[in-house]
Design a protein around this nucleic acid. Sequence first.
DNA 1: AGGCCTAACGGACCGCAGTCCGTTTGGTTG
DNA 2: CAACCAAACGGACTGCGGTCCGTTAGGCCT
Lengths: 212, 212
Amino acid sequence: MTPPSEPSPLSPPARPALRLVDQAPSERADAARNRARLLEAAAELIQQQGAEHLTMDAVAAAACVGKGTVFRRFGDRLGLLFAVLDQTEQEFQQAFMFGPPPLGPGVDPVVRLEAFGGAALRQLHANMDVYLESDQQASARYNAAPRRVRARHIEVLLRSAGVQGDLELLAGALLATLDPAPVHHLLTERGRTVDELEAAWRDLVARITHRC
Amino acid sequence: MTPPSEPSPLSPPARPALRLVDQAPSERADAARNRARLLEAAAELIQQQGAEHLTMDAVAAAACVGKGTVFRRFGDRLGLLFAVLDQTEQEFQQAFMFGPPPLGPGVDPVVRLEAFGGAALRQLHANMDVYLESDQQASARYNAAPRRVRARHIEVLLRSAGVQGDLELLAGALLATLDPAPVHHLLTERGRTVDELEAAWRDLVARITHRC
DNA sequence: AGGCCTAACGGACCGCAGTCCGTTTGGTTG
DNA sequence: CAACCAAACGGACTGCGGTCCGTTAGGCCT
């Protein structure tokens, strides 16, 4: 189980990510101290041994805190990794929402979109091991035979439709749309229907294949 | 660890997925029998209790086989789930490669692309729990605050660029392109560079935002 | 049929994520 | 300052994924 619904003991500042007005239910002093200790210990251990070798016991020990406390604070391993990433992420959010152009407001949105992708890619590249660790089984998924077959199929169709460009990457973008995770999310938590998704797929195909 | 490189004891028929000419290294009789038993047991258990409650011990016990054998055959839990999915997947592959239109050859590739997405979505919908189980942490990823912020940002930019359509889904398609898993895969296993990915991002942005 | 060699087997074992519950303590109230 | 209580703590405990290595038995060769 990952964090419970919402009235959980988690998250007050556990996943701040945009808490401008802090109407905080306030955190007890020892709790706050331990959160800081744990985040510091986790960051330290990640830098030393890589995110993939981070264990909850090790973080607890390094922070001189009981294991239960780690789980109380962050819910699970994923929550801890997210919390570690959160700091960087917040700076990025500031930059693209309120910072200077081309990332921030003040120029053509298409320019900002382009800049956004570049910045996100570079940030990802710099912390890849932590991001990957919070997105496990990735390589298995991407090397799975069925996925390769589908990707190749789409690529071939794009080519024979006369589409120009980096077809492998375009095929990847289309295929990502059909992944279990996003589809399930949209169906169950965003109230979408399969028909809507199919319509969106056709729209995306049209945009990518239409010669302008 | 998931399955080793290639000359592993896995995969001969473990992930057949398109082994037309079976130059099989051939599998010993007991091995083949156990594979069949295990797949049957796994399917049975999944149907009874859902894929999320499937444990390797339970599969081993139900198949009257040692636990080590399960891991020898399928590498890890993910491998077992893939193997269970493989059967359905193969039928789908046959359909879109060699079957009748609109999925199979014989019509305009754009039509086939459209049909492909629809079919994939429906297949996914039917076996969602197994697919999700082989793609864990999905919901955590999709509910994470940073992702929501990015998605919303992109959506807003698309809107102010005057793009028409289902902006939430278009934003999702763009965002999927920046996920850790595919980016890492492309950088490390497909020999792409960050610059290439950035160029591809710009191309995709252009296709999606250009009014035709 | 007998013997050999290697692939396959099986289950004890290990490490880690996550839970449970008895104990401690910050903070608040009278 | 004392008493009280909810929040926080901590570490023993559980369950499961994955490994290891001594044992078993297919299949081939003579």
